Simulated scan of single mutants.
Amino acid sequence: MDWVGPAVTAAVVSGIISIVSLFIGRSTTLITHRQKLDADRQLAERKVEADIALARAKFEYDREQAIFKRKFELAEHMLSDAYQLRSLMEYVRNGFSFSGEATSRVSDGAEREEIKRLRDSYFVPQARLQAENKFLSNMLARRTACHAHFGLEADKAFELFHQSLHQTRVASQLLVEWTAPGEDVDKETMNNLKADIWKGYAEHKGKDNIGRKIEEAVGICEKLCQPVLGSSV
């Protein structure tokens, strides 16, 4: 039959087309699958990179927040302590005293009444500072942390505060020890010591070194702390 040849040819061609179509379809499927895998891999890599970048950014933000919080808290303490110490030293050195303020002074047991009164008046600044030992200890304990966050200027402020406190205590102690019959201490030295424990006396003499140091220290604290306390993150 003449139609068998064309039919066979058609079948062969159809088979070839089917095979080619299958091959093309499979190749297309493989390519599509490979492209999808590549796209998924790239997407996964980008997600991982994004997660890492986000984690790093969060870590940096949290770290900066923690540092700022600590610095803010230290600034609050340092400035409020500076103001409190200035007020305390105004009270310590005001030159007026009340009965019983010097009861913690240990006398030598053979003081005449006028010597006792004078020594008690000189001892009062020490007694007032002793009553504030907790505040002073807490304040000075923050010196290292303030130095770390605010630098050498913060340390300078603390050093000025420390010098003022130490100078007042030493002057008070020396005046008590040197106020006795027969003590040969020149008048100028005694006057300088009185200027250290009594602000009014120092201002009258025109040499309030302790007051000057305290004001300088407070000024440094204001310069360092006010920008931090007035800022936000």
Results as ranks from 00 to 15, higher is better:
residue 56 R to V: 00
residue 31 I to A: 04
residue 43 L to R: 13
residue 30 L to D: 08
residue 28 T to V: 00
residue 53 A to F: 00
residue 38 D to C: 05
residue 62 D to V: 07
residue 52 I to V: 04
residue 32 T to Q: 11
residue 53 A to S: 05
residue 58 K to G: 01
residue 31 I to L: 03
residue 58 K to S: 02
residue 32 T to V: 13
residue 55 A to H: 03
residue 40 D to F: 07
residue 50 A to D: 10
residue 38 D to F: 07
residue 57 A to R: 03
residue 44 A to D: 12
residue 53 A to C: 01
residue 60 E to F: 09
residue 46 R to S: 11
residue 47 K to S: 15
residue 59 F to V: 09
residue 44 A to N: 11
residue 56 R to L: 02
residue 45 E to P: 00
residue 41 R to M: 12
residue 33 H to Q: 10
residue 41 R to N: 15
residue 35 Q to F: 04
residue 54 L to R: 15
residue 40 D to W: 10
residue 36 K to V: 00
residue 29 T to I: 04
residue 58 K to L: 01
residue 40 D to S: 12
residue 30 L to T: 02
residue 41 R to F: 11
residue 45 E to K: 05
residue 30 L to P: 00
residue 61 Y to A: 14
residue 38 D to K: 13
residue 48 V to Q: 09
residue 37 L to R: 14
residue 46 R to G: 13
residue 59 F to K: 14
residue 56 R to H: 14
residue 42 Q to S: 10
residue 31 I to H: 06
residue 63 R to D: 13
residue 51 D to S: 08
residue 30 L to Q: 09
residue 60 E to Y: 14
residue 44 A to T: 08
residue 33 H to D: 08
residue 43 L to H: 12
residue 50 A to H: 05
residue 28 T to F: 08
residue 30 L to R: 06
residue 33 H to N: 10
residue 53 A to V: 01
residue 38 D to I: 08
residue 50 A to P: 02
residue 36 K to P: 00
residue 60 E to K: 11
residue 63 R to C: 04
